[in-house]
């Protein structure tokens, strides 16, 4: 009697995919991995350029003891949280509207999805031109006699509550989340909702017990991605935020570009902190999506 034995034979086939990926991976490893390694070592105080060659936790301790760091962290969480929540709610409402049949649906859906390829920086300039105290809306309000001077217009850009930053994220991310929700709604159709209606569910109950669970996987994954992006992004809070407190990424950048090179390890520690939080969120996203796929 001979039992079937697994053959352990060397074949190039096993290495085909890693070999094909090797050129791209080596670039990523060199640039990204190298950069990460450099950031990591500098965050632990290894900065030979100013004579620091010993590793220490000083920079990490310093940032956690710095009041400005916590204020920046709070502001960043506020921006990410409010922007994500607002865009998610708006995205769901838009997707629910766009799934219906109405005249001009194609054109409106196209307009809704139009800003997906537009860069954030363009949105930021738009917000500046529209909402700043010298912006279009302030001038129109002045012309209409609602305010006597454009400077009387409420500060909506570079403001305390980060309205400008949040507005830019909402403008950009609503259509991102909305497109994902709309795709889910269109692929599922209205059958489940019809079944629920027939079983006695009113409009709100249908949304709460049927539509929401159906779109939740898409909403959850998209909103985690949006939050992770908003948490780590630099250019929008840099352009539209206040100098103090600033978003975490801007604080890290300021420390990095400070003339005092001794602040550089702190900048690196802050950057790594942002990367860690974002990575944590991505892992959470992957865990949730895998769980949902299994179910």
């Amino acid at each position: 009697m001979s039992a079937l034995q697994p053959r352990s034979r060397f074949t190039w086939e096993r290495f085909r995919i890693p070999l094909l990926l090797a050129p791209a991976l080596s670039v990523i490893l060199l640039l990204f991995g190298g950069g990460l390694l450099l950031t990591l070592s500098q965050s632990f105080g290894y900065l030979p350029i100013i004579g620091k060659t010993e590793f220490s936790l000083a920079a990490w301790q310093a940032i956690f003891q710095r009041g400005e760091f916590w204020q920046s962290l709070f502001l960043t969480l506020w921006i990410g949280g409010v922007a994500t929540l607002t865009s998610t709610i708006l995205a769901i409402l838009c997707a629910l509207t766009l799934r219906k049949q109405f005249r001009g649906k194609k054109a409106i859906t196209f307009l809704f999805q139009l800003n997906i390829p537009i860069p954030h920086i363009v949105g930021a300039i738009g917000i500046l031109l529209l909402f700043s105290q010298s912006g279009l809306i302030a001038r129109l309000a002045n012309l209409a006699g609602m305010i006597n001077d454009p400077a009387q217009f409420p500060a909506l850009v570079n403001d305390r509550y980060a309205f400008g930053i949040i507005a830019e994220y909402v403008w950009k991310e609503t259509c991102f989340i909305g497109t994902i929700v709309l795709a889910t709604l269109q692929s599922v159709g209205e059958d489940y909702e019809n079944a629920a209606a027939s079983l006695g569910a009113n409009r709100w109950q249908r949304f709460r017990y049927v539509t929401l669970p159906l779109i939740m996987p898409g909403v959850l994954t998209a909103s985690i991605l949006v939050f992770a992006f908003a948490f780590g992004a630099f250019e929008i809070p840099f352009l539209l935020g206040r100098r103090f407190p600033s978003a975490l990424s801007v604080l890290a950048w300021r420390s990095y570009t400070d003339t005092d090179l001794a602040l550089r390890p702190e900048a690196m520690a802050m950057s790594l902190f942002i990367a860690l939080v974002s990575t944590g969120l991505i892992l959470l996203y992957m865990t949730i999506s895998r769980k949902l796929v299994r179910e």
């Binding site: 059958d191 489940y192 079944a195 209606a197 027939s198 079983l199 159906l214 179910e295």
Partner: peptide
């Protein structure tokens, strides 16, 4: 009378049992 108050309950061909 809207579907939810009509009292005519439909069992669909593809079951449509809520998977969640």
């Amino acid at each position: 009378t809207p579907a939810e108050s009509r009292g005519a309950v439909m069992a669909f061909q593809n079951n449509l049992v809520f998977p969640w």
